[in-house]
Design a protein around this nucleic acid. Structure first.
Lengths: 217, 217
DNA sequence: AATATTTTTTAGGGTAGACTAAAAATAATT
DNA sequence: AATTATTTTTAGTCTACCCTAAAAAATATT
């Protein structure tokens, strides 16, 4: 297994390759490589039985491929916790370094790091850390966009794109923070959140798809 | 700069490429690659002006190459401190993981890690950590083999080969420990060390070249 | 000094991972 | 249904890094 193959498998996973067929086009966009390179890598991963391939349709992870994806995400997220908690990174800074570190981390290193960090369940943006065996703890959370006016909730998880995290940092939205959904503007308009202290925050319609909350009672 | 090039430069440095010409043969042994591959890499590093090359004699680091070597060693040793102090690695275990981590560590990551570790001066086997600018703090230490009977000293640094460190672990020799040189057997025989408490430890002649001490008063 | 050995270099090749350009297949539009 | 546009695949290249086998240069030995 090489870093490039690992990144490719992770990209398939992140595009939904656990349950549905992922197109070459999506992989081209996600990895910023040419279409020919995607076909190339597909044939290599196919040979190792990490993916299944439907010609001109796309690829899906096999059980074997899924296991590798989950173990990579475990490594990635444990490093993110380390960078944020111990080295003082902001949550929008952790991604790039974790992406490099995950490929050179032995299982032993990760388990020792995990113990050092006191076995965290979530990474800095609320992503669940998969278990050693590749299983993923079940966490119930709701996309903010599905909430109704009056719902009270805590921020559970947010999308981990650097610019989005920066935006939330600016909006002072952070994990665990409690809000009530005060208002939803019609025609895909913005959502107004209100803290228990009465402070109001306005969130765009599209952003509400990228925020996941835990509704209280 | 790629991991392989970095390893090659580090190997040249470790074979003395700062002050003398290093032969291809030595690099073949150190890196376990073919002689042809060494010539190959030499020409590539030559093109980047990281080494100078005397045909059929060997290579030496340029200022540029030396800077890279020292920065790599800085990264390597800071990771070693982390693995030993925070993750509980024994001193003979740190080398392999540090060797991988050093190639994927941004300068920012290393500086933040350095601060987290409270800016250590030495790695777990006593190696000095080069400064950010590539300069190396001067530390005075004497090879144990050059000591005279009666000398009192502290263990300052030891060679960082895994099996040697394991041997020292077994002999209970560790950094900072104080001994008096009690006896040297003639004809390249073993050396006897004695702790202030009167415990004696016998060290082979060859091992005495790989242990560096700080003589007291 | 001539021969034998060792070391380095050259020549030619292999694999992983990327590319461009063109061909083939699928999907969208008129 | 025919044409156009998009997506995927194939074909051919390129670079980094490694290899083996053979040639060339340097070193050792007789």
């Amino acid at each position: 297994m090489t870093p490039n193959k690992e990144d490719f498998i992770k990209a398939i996973f992140e595009l939904g390759g656990k349950e549905k067929v992922v197109t070459n086009k999506d992989l081209v966009r996600m990895l910023s490589i040419s279409a020919a390179s995607v076909t190339d890598m597909n044939t290599r991963l196919l040979k190792e039985e990490l993916i299944t391939h439907l010609p001109y349709q796309g690829v899906m992870l096999t059980e074997k491929g899924l296991l590798i994806a989950n173990q990579l995400i475990r490594k990635h997220r444990i490093w993110e916790v380390f960078l944020a908690e111990k080295l003082g990174y902001d949550w929008n800074e952790v991604h790039a370094d974790a992406d490099l570190l995950e490929h050179v981390s032995s299982d032993l290193l990760i388990e020792r790091l995990n113990i050092f960090l006191e076995e965290p369940t979530f990474d800095p943006h609320g992503g669940v850390i998969p278990n050693q065996d590749g299983t993923v703890p079940e966490i119930h959370s709701t996309p903010l966009i599905e909430c109704r006016v009056g719902d009270r909730f805590k921020i559970q998880e947010v999308d981990d794109q650097e610019d989005f995290l920066e935006y939330l940092l600016y909006k002072k939205v952070h994990l665990g923070k409690e809000y009530t959904l005060a208002e939803i503007e019609p025609y895909d308009g913005p959502l107004t959140l209100e803290t228990p202290a009465g402070e109001k925050t306005v969130i765009g319609h599209k952003a509400a798809f990228k925020i996941f909350v835990d509704i209280i009672e």
